[in-house]
C-alpha cells in the first residue's frame, strides 16, 4: 500500500510540474520580455530574466502623453526599429475598458438567457425540443467570417456600427448556443427524481429551475460565465469589422494594430499582451474554486 501511495504522489508531482512548465512558461516569457528593452529581447541566447528591468512600455500605456501635436512637439524618427512607442499606445486603456464592459455584459446576459433555454430543453419534455436544440446549434456551424458581411449590413441598418452594443449582441449570439449545450449536458446528469419531487410538491418550472437545478449546477454555471466572458474578451474578427474607432474597439483590435504596423517594438507588443491577460486571469482565479472544488459533488447523490 505504501509503494502505491508513493507512486501516486510521484505521478501527480511529475504531471503537475510538466503542466506548470507548459502552461505558465510562455506567459512567464511574455512577462519577462515586456520588462526588457528591445536590444535585450533580441539577444542570442535569449535573456530569461530582464538584465535591466524597464517599465517604459507600461508607463507609455498607463501615462500616455496627452498632447496636441504641432511642428514643435512632434516626435522625430521612425519608431520602427524600437525604443519608440506607437501612436496608438494611448488607446490601450480605453480598449481595455471596452473589452471589460462588453465581456461582463455578455457573461451576464448570456447566463440569463441560456439557463432558461437549457432548462426548457433538458428538463421539460416538450414536443420539438430536439428541433429547438438543433436550430440553436446550427447557428454555430457557419464560419464567423461568412457572417461578418451580412452582420455589418444589419448593424449599419440599425445604426449600431462602432458601438459596444453591437459587439454585445453579436457575442451573445456566438456564445449562447454553446452555453446552452454545456448546461443541457449538465442538467441531464442531475437525477430526474429531484425534478419529479419538486413538481409533485407543486413547484412551477421557474421554481424548479431556481431551487433545484441552479443550486446543483454551480460548476457548470461558473464555467458558462467564464466561457462567455473569455470568448468576448478574445474575439477578433467581428470586432475588427464592426468597430472602427476607439469608442468601441476592443483590446485584440488595438493589439493586432500594433503588430500589423511597421512602427512598433516587440517589447511593447509583449507589454500590451500582458495587459490583456491580467483582467481575465484575476477574474478566472476568483471563480476557479467553484469549478474545481466541486461544491456539489456530494449533493448530486440523488
Amino acid at each position: 500500500m505504501m509503494w502505491r501511495r508513493g507512486l501516486r504522489a510521484l505521478v501527480i508531482t511529475v504531471l503537475s510540474l510538466l503542466l506548470v512548465i507548459y502552461v505558465a512558461g510562455p506567459v512567464a516569457w511574455l512577462v519577462s520580455s515586456s520588462l526588457q528593452s528591445e536590444s535585450d529581447i533580441t539577444a542570442v541566447p535569449p535573456n530569461w530574466l530582464p538584465p535591466k528591468v524597464t517599465f517604459d512600455n507600461f508607463e507609455a500605456i498607463f501615462a500616455p502623453p496627452k498632447r496636441e501635436v504641432t511642428y514643435e512637439t512632434r516626435r522625430q524618427g521612425d519608431p520602427a526599429t524600437g525604443r519608440f512607442l506607437p501612436s496608438g499606445a494611448e488607446n490601450l486603456l480605453p480598449a481595455l475598458w471596452n473589452s471589460f464592459a462588453v465581456g461582463m455584459l455578455v457573461a451576464i446576459l448570456n447566463l440569463v438567457v441560456s439557463m432558461t433555454a437549457a432548462y426548457a430543453i433538458a428538463v421539460i419534455h416538450f414536443k420539438g425540443r430536439k428541433a429547438a436544440l438543433y436550430t440553436i446549434l446550427v447557428t454555430r456551424v457557419i464560419p464567423d467570417i461568412a457572417l461578418i458581411v451580412p452582420l455589418f449590413l444589419v448593424m449599419r441598418q440599425l445604426d449600431l456600427v462602432n458601438t459596444r452594443f453591437a459587439l454585445v449582441v453579436t457575442y451573445l449570439a456566438v456564445t449562447v448556443p454553446f452555453t446552452i449545450f454545456i448546461l443541457i449536458s449538465y442538467f441531464e446528469q442531475i437525477p430526474r427524481d429531484l425534478y419529479r419531487a419538486a413538481r409533485a410538491d407543486g413547484c412551477s418550472h421557474w421554481q424548479a429551475l431556481r431551487f433545484v437545478y441552479l443550486p446543483l449546477s454551480l460548476p457548470a454555471l461558473v464555467a458558462s460565465v467564464m466561457f462567455a466572458f473569455l470568448t468576448s474578451w478574445n474575439e477578433f474578427i467581428f470586432a475588427l469589422i464592426l468597430t472602427q474607432n476607439i469608442t468601441s474597439q476592443t483590446l485584440p483590435i488595438i493589439i493586432s494594430g500594433f503588430v500589423m504596423d511597421f512602427t512598433t517594438s516587440f517589447s511593447f507588443i509583449n507589454a500590451a499582451g500582458v495587459i490583456a491577460i491580467v483582467p481575465p486571469v484575476v477574474l478566472a482565479m476568483m471563480f476557479e474554486r467553484y469549478i474545481v472544488s466541486g461544491l456539489t459533488a456530494g449533493a448530486v447523490k440523488g
Binding site: 496636441e68 501635436v69 511642428y71 514643435e72 522625430q76 506607437p86 501612436s87 512602427t263
Partner: peptide
Amino acid sequence: WSAAVDQVRSHVSA
C-alpha cells in the same frame, strides 16, 4: 495608415 503619425498630426494642426 498609421505611418508618420506625428508628422501628419503636426501638419493637421497647422
